[in-house]
Amino acid sequence: MYEIIFNLHSFLAYIVLAILGIALINAILGLTGKKDFTLEKDFRISLFALILSHLQLLVGLVLYFVSARGFSAIQEFGMGGLTSAARLLAVEHPFINILALVFITIGWSKHKNLMEASRKFKTIAIFYGIGLLLILSRLPWSQWF
């Protein structure tokens, strides 16, 4: 069971990073190009990024509680007994990624209340950009390459 969840979390991470990047680039291009915010494209890209990010968080939380690298590592070794790599997986990665999802969710919620396309694009660009940067800052890169 652990392997399935781990592989899903790892595979979904690539998709989430790609769609968040697409949503960010789309918002920047819409803002700089002074384009209209359309439901067919811009709304759906941003929504898809939000949904996939939240799905990734749910899979990650399940993995965190069934993995020996997550919550059980803290219980077994305590915070002082974790190596830097273990601390990344058990503390920093989950905390920063939850924070990133908070920013992405705030950006989504704020953009819905705005009427001007430029302000919608700007809000998505700022909040999704902060979320993406936070996610990239705490990825376990050593496991990816």
Rank of each mutant, 00 (worst) to 15 (best):
G33I: 00
D36G: 08
N113H: 06
V59P: 03
N113E: 05
S118D: 15
A49L: 12
I28L: 09
A90T: 03
P140H: 06
F127P: 01
Q143G: 14
K41R: 15
I98R: 08
E3W: 14
G131E: 03
T123C: 02
S84R: 04
T38Y: 03
L39G: 12
Q143I: 08
A27W: 15
P94L: 11
K120V: 02
G30M: 03
I45H: 10
F48W: 15
F127C: 02
A125F: 05
W108G: 10
I104H: 14
V59D: 05
R119P: 07
R87A: 13
L29H: 07
F48C: 14
L63I: 06
T105C: 15
T83Y: 00
E116F: 04
H111I: 14
N7E: 13
E40Q: 15
A68W: 13
L133S: 02
A100D: 04
L114H: 05
D42M: 01
I135G: 00
E40K: 15
P94D: 13
A125C: 05
N7K: 15
K120Y: 03
L132W: 02
L82E: 07
I22L: 07
L29V: 12
I135E: 00
S67L: 09
L136T: 01
A23C: 11
N7D: 13
N97K: 09
F37T: 09
W144A: 06
A18N: 11
A73C: 13
S84N: 08
V91M: 07
N26D: 12
L132M: 07
A13W: 14
R87S: 12
L88F: 05
E3P: 12
S53H: 13
F77S: 15
T38M: 05
I45F: 10
H9P: 03
R119A: 10
I126Q: 00
P140V: 01
R138L: 08
S118M: 11
F48N: 14
A68P: 15
V62T: 11
S84W: 01
A100F: 04
N7C: 10
A49F: 09
Q143E: 12
T123H: 03
T32N: 05
F65S: 06
G80V: 11
A90G: 05
S84Y: 02
S10C: 10
Y2H: 01
R87Q: 11
L52S: 10
L99W: 01
